[in-house]
Design a protein around this nucleic acid. Structure first.
Lengths: 130, 130
DNA sequence: GTCTTTGTATCACTAGATTGATACAAAAGA
DNA sequence: TCTTTTGTATCAATCTAGTGATACAAAGAC
């Protein structure tokens, strides 16, 4: 249960952000279910060969996003995604399906992955007002 | 036609990246159609109050993504998105529709915007092998 | 052929981000 | 109550990315 997070030091994305992204999407996908315990900051740091503070930073940001919850001495557990607070598991399934549809149609249209991300981002921000 | 790009200096995202993202999504959405002329690096830089090299960097990355094409003395024009090279306008419309469906279902599920981006990213990378 | 307008390349400076180390704080358990 | 295990805070060192300035190069206009 340790090796679900990987680091690529040649990636320009900094380690704490790699950790954050991977855990975020694992939680969003449902691989990490609410109640799951994450490794302690020290153990994950040791596994990855980095400082504990780096893992702590990733955890902190995930907590601010409402995906996990850290308590001293108790460790860190998954509480999200916050979308289906009443156990409505269908919500996330619908989102996942929508993601897959999007990716398939984007690939068919020949849109690059980076461009697709930009597209979603742009659409998200432009949907704030209306 | 100049003010379609905005800078937010308080945003941690650097200026060149803000420019890149905005133009990328404008092109992907179709607001900037193939053949459109982008402002010159100097004029856009002057409008935004930044150095020309900063705009040039954004343009360079967009060119590497295949979205625009720069020629000396000729300026820079939109050539993409590369998805519908034969004028199949329906391709991008399908992608746009998929994006909207995704955003709507994510909002209904209460998923944060940042988390949604992470989710799409994670799904994109995990879809490389299979 | 010259001039002017465009993008391109380079380079040093600065500012900020990231990290690792260390010390601190809380909370559970013996 | 003492100890241990966890997360948290801090802080300085390093490193890298981003920028602005300047000079260069190509290509069309005249």
């Amino acid at each position: 249960m340790t090796a679900r997070v990987t680091l690529d030091l040649s990636d320009p994305v900094p380690p704490y952000e790699q950790i954050r992204r991977q855990l975020s999407s694992l939680i969003a996908v449902g691989v990490l279910e609410p109640g799951s315990r994450l490794p302690t900051v020290r153990s994950l740091a040791a596994d990855l060969g980095i400082a504990a503070g780096t893992v702590a930073r990733a955890y902190k940001e995930l907590e601010q996003s409402g995906l996990i919850e850290s308590r001293r001495r108790n460790g860190t557990i998954v509480v999200g995604p916050p979308g289906a607070p009443h156990g409505v598991a269908g919500g996330d399934a619908a989102v996942m399906a929508a993601v897959d549809v999007l990716i398939r149609s984007a690939r068919e249209a020949g849109i690059r992955d980076d461009t697709l991300i930009d597209l979603v981002r742009g659409r998200l921000t432009s949907k704030l007002d209306p």
